[in-house]
Simulated assay, not measured.
Amino acid sequence: MLFALLLFSALAFLLLAPSAGQARTRPFFITKEQAYNGMLRADIPPALVIDDGDTVVFNTVMLLGGNLSPEMSFDDMLALRTEMKEKGIGVYAFTGPFHINGAEPGDTLEVRIRRIVPGKYAVTHIYPDHMNIGGLPEGFSKGFLKPLFLSQDRKTIEFAPGVTLKTRPFLGTMAVAPRPGEELPPAVPGYFAGNMDNKELVEGTTLYIPVNVRGALFMAADAHAVQGDGEVSIAAAETYFEEVELQFVVRKDLKLHYPLAESPTHWIVMGFHHDLDEAMKMAIREAISFLMREKGLSREEAFSLCSLSVDFRVTQVVDGDKGVHGMIPKSIFS
């Protein structure tokens, strides 16, 4: 009897275990010259082709084509940024795109954030008042750039004497291709995800993005070592990632029209709009839709529950489209 049970267990393991052709881990490391610095489009040739379920371990490079550096002055950075914009080049240096076999328009791409290893240094900055960039464009006559250095274990940053920050690395930008025919700036968030700057998307969380073109064409950039909700000065601790490990799963059973995220403790809905009030309304609508769809609540019940238990936070206020995200606690559901 025991032998039969062991034999059955062994056969079950062999049948359920992924074969050699399934669920691979793919390394993909780039130099700054290999980064993609253009607009978001649906016709960018893929840099890597993977299968549904595969994991990719990759790196990212600094902003400004990989050239942003703590050795720069603010004027150096501004000159480089101005030059790139005059040439029509985006200031984001993307790793990708990744073509995921099996992803079709109408599907959802599930992006599981497994691991992030930040780099050794970072930069934060503010722009002068006359540029009208940031959440408080007043009282700063000159631009400012501050170099930041991570501790050897990459766990902290000494911002100033007596001021130590715990790192909480995340990708500021994770995007799939927009709809065919559209060309979008890389600094804008939207239905394709993009530059969400959502500090909740750390390792251990999952992002769900609606797919708009065959293969999804996923790209990542804008590495942040740490950021507060709002990102009010326009910059987080802008860094690079030595390694990011993401797993990609094509979901045929999940139909979304807007990005959704999941942490071990919360469901996270999002809204983006150039008007912060409208972004808030969008996030509330997304929360109501989620609670009706997933939890079977009426519209009235869902809206009431949003007021009682959902925390709505300002994601960022500094890009063309501002963001609000709603934190729906899993603990309230039995």
Results as ranks from 00 to 15, higher is better:
Met1Ser: 15
Leu5Ala: 14
Leu11Met: 13
Leu14Asp: 09
Ala17Cys: 14
Gly21Phe: 14
Gln22Val: 11
Phe28Tyr: 15
Phe29Asn: 12
Ile30Cys: 15
Lys32Asp: 11
Met39Trp: 08
Asp43Phe: 01
Ile50Met: 07
Ile50Phe: 11
Thr55Trp: 05
Val56Cys: 04
Asn59Glu: 06
Leu63Trp: 02
Asn67Tyr: 09
Lys87Pro: 13
Glu104Asn: 11
Glu110Ser: 11
Lys120Ser: 13
Ala122Ser: 15
Gly139Asp: 06
Pro147Ala: 12
Leu148Pro: 07
Ile157Met: 09
Phe159Glu: 10
Leu165His: 10
Phe170Asn: 05
Gly172Met: 12
Met174Leu: 14
Ala175Gln: 06
Val176Ser: 04
Val176Glu: 06
Pro178Trp: 05
Arg179Cys: 04
Arg179Tyr: 04
Pro180Asn: 09
Glu183His: 05
Glu183Arg: 14
Pro189Val: 11
Gly190Asp: 08
Ala193Phe: 10
Asn195Asp: 13
Asn195Lys: 07
Glu203Gly: 03
Leu207His: 04
Ile209His: 02
Ile209Trp: 03
Ile209Gln: 01
Asn212Gly: 07
Val213His: 10
Leu217Ile: 06
Leu217His: 13
Ala221Thr: 13
Val226Asn: 10
Gly230Trp: 00
Ile234Glu: 01
Ile234Arg: 01
Ala235Pro: 09
Ala237Gln: 03
Glu242Thr: 10
Glu242Pro: 01
Val244Glu: 03
Leu246Asp: 08
Leu260Trp: 05
Ala261Pro: 12
Pro264Thr: 08
Trp267Met: 14
Gly271Phe: 01
His273Glu: 11
His273Gln: 04
His273Trp: 00
Asp277Pro: 02
Ala279Tyr: 02
Ala283Val: 05
Glu301His: 02
Ala302Gln: 06
Phe303Gly: 00
Leu305Val: 03
Cys306His: 00
Ser307Tyr: 00
Ser309Met: 07
Phe312Ser: 03
Asp321Asn: 14
Gly323Ile: 04
Gly323Pro: 01
His325Met: 10
Met327Val: 08
Ile328Tyr: 01
